[in-house]
Design a binder for these strands. Structure first.
Length: 494
DNA sequence: AGAGTTTTGTA
DNA sequence: ACAAAACTC
């Protein structure tokens, strides 16, 4: 438990919270700190569609983010915190725009929660420098992870590169510390002093209303407010967390079966910040006797998964090359990756002729999400059986996932491609047919997403005979596996 | 959070 | 004859 908070000190007349992927009122460190230390508080969100596109963030993740922001705007307004929405093309233009904003709004202090990919860090460094030079107080908070990246180091002062020792050190460091969520910000006395909008130079309009879509992003919520079936917002995120709590006891046993819906499905909310990591840990601890282990098998297992997210976020902060399309192990760039556009397209569309792969890719395309077991299966298939550059797969996932997160996605892809730290050994190649029989025994999941195969028996569905209307496999799984192993083995120092 | 083959252990 | 363990890639 933390120490009792000192009485809030309202040092600043006007503060600004810069919202990014932390779109919630509750347990938002920067928002809480801002409300605590300022008499008046506003929030700003800066959409950077070109930079987002350049780093492969696709329509699903962007649309979901904006829909969560729209919900948050209402909740902020109820607390007399106006939200200013600004769209500018690129991160590089953010510092200039931010200088103007804080000047026009007479801001004395800026609060934001840290982001850790390289481009975001550089953007934030530039903003910090610009605003400090202008005499402002700038506070970047640790919020996205349980501990700030860099807080857990090996005995030799190194970043952990292997998950298991990282986890051991992390748990030892935290013991059964309770990562208590923060309360929502207090209601500010008034919002009357804030302008409704500001005109900036270079035709940047700051407005209080949020567009449903940005140029280039066509995805809009359906009649019920859902995006690809996902309800955006902090309330929906909290509902998901509560619903998962009901079944977390079965998580360890059932999570690997994609037909079962036994996973938390919280990733879209965690990624844009509609749910916080501390809220997740608080729930899991409550189900697990108040600590990391020893209580509920399912809760314990899920806490381990949350630590994978923690691990990959610490890694993305420590190694800029992970944000730059480079493998963690440089030698793996000498793997003779293929760049076959037609094969790649069959993988993207879910027409490889390997049912479990096709079902998984269609789940991604149709719902913006894919079960984690299947993420491993399709990534192994692309990078080992097809020997296509893992970066093509990584990019496609970023473009299609509603939970697209550079740290977790890059970590997962480099794990599957054997290019990462603590990745799967190159000779350990998934057989998609074995995986299919093991984890979708009755073909239930395949039938859900590959209607052409619905009529097949559970015997035939994993590896169907030649059929009208369904492609033959694009590769021989056994042969391509051997070729991939040979290609990796041909390199030294792996 | 591998898969395939061979060896060993038990009847 | 079969399963579990032990190798290999």
């Amino acid at each position: 438990m933390g120490n009792p908070e000192p009485k809030p000190l309202k040092r600043f007349r006007r503060g600004l919270v810069w919202l990014r992927n932390d779109l919630r009122l509750n347990d938002n460190t920067a928002l809480y700190r801002g409300a605590q230390s300022c008499r008046e508080l506003a929030a700003v969100f800066i959409a950077c569609p070109i930079s987002w596109q350049e780093q492969d963030e696709g329509e699903p993740v962007v649309a979901f983010r904006l829909a969560c922001l729209r919900e948050l705007q209402q909740r902020l307004a109820e607390r007399n915190i106006p939200l200013y929405f600004l769209e500018i093309a690129r991160f590089q233009q953010v510092p200039r725009a931010m200088e103007e904003i804080v000047h026009k709004l007479e801001i004395e202090a800026l609060f934001a929660n840290s982001e850790y990919p390289y481009n975001e860090q550089r953007r934030d460094d530039a903003v910090r420098t610009a605003l400090k030079n202008a005499g402002l107080q700038v506070e970047f908070c640790s919020d996205r992870t349980l501990l700030p990246p860099g807080a857990v180091k090996t005995g030799g002062g190194e970043t952990y590169k292997v998950f298991t020792p990282f986890k051991r050190a992390f748990v030892a460091r935290c013991g059964s510390d309770y990562f208590a969520p923060l309360p929502p910000p207090r209601k500010m006395e008034t919002a009357a002093g804030w302008p409704r909008w500001i005109q900036l130079a270079e035709q940047h309009n700051l407005v209080r209303t949020i567009p449903g879509k940005l140029p280039g992003y066509e995805l809009t919520p359906d009649r019920n407010g859902r995006l690809l079936g996902w309800m955006p917002g902090e309330k929906a995120g909290a509902r998901h967390l509560r619903a998962f709590r009901e079944k977390i006891g079965r998580y360890a046993l059932e999570r690997d079966f994609p037909a079962k819906d036994a996973t938390s499905r919280l990733s879209p909310y965690l990624n844009c910040g509609a749910v916080s990591i501390r809220q997740c840990v608080q729930m899991a601890f409550a189900e697990n006797g108040g600590g990391w282990s020893g209580g509920n098998q399912g809760a314990e297992c899920w806490l381990g998964e949350l630590l994978w997210r923690e691990f990959y976020t610490h890694l993305i902060a420590a190694f800029p090359r992970l944000s730059m399309h480079k493998p963690f192990k440089p030698d793996t760039d000498r793997v003779p990756w293929k760049y076959d556009a037609q094969l790649f397209r069959s993988w993207c569309e879910g027409t490889t002729g390997v049912p479990i792969v096709d079902a998984a890719m269609r789940q991604l395309n149709e719902t913006g999400w894919m079960h984690n077991r299947l993420r491993m299966v399709v990534a192994s298939f692309l990078t080992k059986n097809l020997l296509i550059d893992w970066r093509w797969g990584e990019r496609y996932f970023m473009q299609r996932l509603i939970d697209a997160d550079l740290a977790a996605n890059n970590g997962g892809w480099q794990w599957a491609a054997s290019t990462g730290t603590d990745s799967v050994p190159y000779f350990r190649v998934f057989n998609p047919y074995s995986q299919s029989k093991r984890f979708d025994r009755h073909g239930e999941f395949i039938r859900r997403f590959v209607p052409e195969l619905r009529h097949l028996s559970e015997k035939a569905i994993h590896c169907p005979p030649p059929l009208d209307g369904y492609p033959a496999p694009v590769c021989d799984v056994a042969q391509s596996r051997d070729q991939a192993i040979a290609a990796f083995a041909g390199l030294r120092n792996l």
